[in-house]
Nucleic acid binder design. Structure first.
Lengths: 340, 340
DNA sequence: CGCCATGAGTAAACCCTTTTACGATGGTGC
DNA sequence: GCACCATCGTAAAAGGGTTTACTCATGGCG
């Protein structure tokens, strides 16, 4: 039994194909009575338009691609997970589907990241967490494709993005720690991303502006993971035992650092304060609860969807949106201890 | 500038549309010389076939849907993440794309879970982690759609699945704990899934067969999460202080239980042993390392892809595959302590 | 009463490939 | 020299919608 097509509906209702199509697309040209007749038949037959025929004719697929970075276990990372949830929610709310991609070697070298868009397979693409070195993004820029970077950006490139305000994050973080009296702060800096760079630089600048010396703001690069935070903290503490606070590049790094501190029998926050960034769900459940600067990743994801579609619809050429952040003070930060 | 189509290529090469199409589909009917000529033109124009036209004509979308359960933070759950990784990897290996879906209220009530397949939008669908109550699956059964349940199943239904051997898992677990001398074992049983039921029942049967009494095998239901494990463990320990081992329904529950034990100053495994199921990445990093029965979720994901496509291609009507599991003994299980 | 604007619907072109039945060409065996 | 067969291509029919320009009544207006 063949699927029922628009033709079947048209014949049954004694109208033309176009009429049915117009009804289905809510075109006001069709009278209420005809509309109803058609809709009834549609309902009766459980008619489902063929999405391919539709996409082919309308040049819109109603599909969004989300491109994940090629990291181990990306699909179970809370940071990415929150963003994907936001994307998925918003997309399905407005009738869009989400296609999964990973920016791995093959994906880039075969040019699939471009073909995906030029072949109209997807209306737009959302890139999550690409790194400084992701030169492939430039091709997306030159070809003016509907692409949005999610919670990161590429300075000097005309690429749209929706991202948390990392500068403001850094300033709030600096204020918070300085206000608690910390004068030697170690920075667990994420690696390979412009946001990480911007965060670190702004943080340092803010501290220096308040009278700290650069040498009292040692930093170490590391992966944005518990392990990365653990190792970076280790490196920093071994060289700078007088540090009274650790600034994590994200919550996971901060959590990794806290594990190290526990192993070293350093109390948080009595001996050393730890501050994170993101406010991923786990942060509320650490012990002590992690103070952090909240980035609303879910919301960033949904806004990215809207931005991407605005680009696709030609409403705009370039969208660069920076979102406010919020200090969440829990228990992992406290007054700086006296160091003799 | 319009996209180059198969027609452009054909004209440029002085051959028919069909010829180009056949070349592109590696049909041996076309001679090597013609083939080469066409491929050169394709290369020169960076020609990309229009996927929609292709899907429309060929009735195959080369897309798979992965349907996630409607849980909080599914997209950052390691269990689901591992499976999705396996699915994604295998799918992209064989030229398939992966579409994301969530089995939420809307998805089911609108019949999208069926329409997705009947409308040929996707070639097949992979359902991850549906529950006992997911009646909507029965419609997939009656309509004989290409659907595979991933690491779970529905007894009494003719639904294909690829799942770890939960019975064997239960037996291995029982052997392991009994071998260590445990005689009173609390079970942190996952809830709402047939695999959880099967696991619990088989575990109890195995223990009883070895001479334990049922009343020494108390169990508590809980969500498959750290929190769920924590609470279930709490409930069990409060009522059964003589327990010497806790059997987690999965690693997360086991990890949650370990947190509780730490809070209660009970040493693992000296005072109480803890055993998990799955061997998700985190299990190697707990302290002490979590003993567990390994389910190769990544592999299960890839096999599910192959199974789904076998169904789609009509190679088979029903595929029910059970995969071997493996004991991973780390430090969280040890000899039962003497309880006076 | 004739003209025109408006509303409702339709015809037909178009979107781009796949696929099957058929055609042409040249060679083979007898 | 003929029937027959491969081999290589092609024509044309799907596949199922969208969309634009056009038709045809109808009613209002001057």
């Amino acid at each position: 039994m063949a699927r029922t097509t628009i033709k079947d509906i048209a014949e049954e209702c004694g109208v033309s194909l176009s009429t049915v199509s117009l009804v289905l697309n809510n075109n006001p040209r069709i009278s209420a009575s005809t509309r109803e007749k058609v809709l009834k038949a549609v309902e009766r037959h459980q008619y489902q338009p063929n999405v391919f025929a539709r996409s082919l004719a309308s040049r819109s697929s109603h599909v969004l691609s989300v491109v994940m970075p090629d990291l181990n276990h990306v699909f179970s990372d809370t940071y990415f997970g929150e963003i994907v949830s936001g994307i998925y929610d918003r997309a399905s709310e407005i009738g869009y589907k989400v296609l999964l991609d990973v920016a791995n070697q093959r994906f880039v070298s075969t040019g699939e990241h471009v073909a995906l868009l030029t072949s109209k397979r997807v209306d737009a693409a959302l890139f999550i967490g690409s790194s400084i070195y992701d030169e492939y993004l430039t091709r997306l820029e030159t070809e003016q494709l509907p692409v949005v970077l999610v919670n990161h950006f590429m300075p000097g490139h005309k690429l749209s993005y929706v991202a948390a305000d990392y500068k403001e994050t850094a300033r709030i973080a600096a204020d918070h720690l300085l206000g608690l009296g910390h004068r030697q702060i170690g920075i667990l800096s994420g690696t390979n991303t412009h946001t990480a760079l911007e965060f670190r630089n702004t943080f340092i600048d803010a501290c220096v502006a308040s009278g700290l010396r650069e040498e009292d703001l040692p930093w170490a690069d590391g992966w944005f993971s518990e392990q990365g935070g653990y190792e970076a903290a280790q490196w920093l503490l071994d060289r700078n035992p007088r540090i009274t606070a650790l600034m994590g590049g994200n919550d996971k790094m901060a959590i990794g650092a806290m594990r190290l501190l526990k192993e070293r029998k350093l109390r948080v926050p009595d001996d050393i304060s730890v501050l994170g960034v993101d406010d991923t769900p786990a942060s509320a459940f650490t012990n002590p609860g992690l103070s952090t600067i909240r980035h609303d990743l879910f919301h960033i994801g949904s806004l990215a969807v809207d931005a991407a579609l605005a680009l696709f619809n030609g409403d705009s050429k370039l969208l660069q949106k920076t979102l406010p952040v919020q200090m969440i003070a829990r228990e992992s930060t406290g007054p700086a201890p006296h160091r003799p």
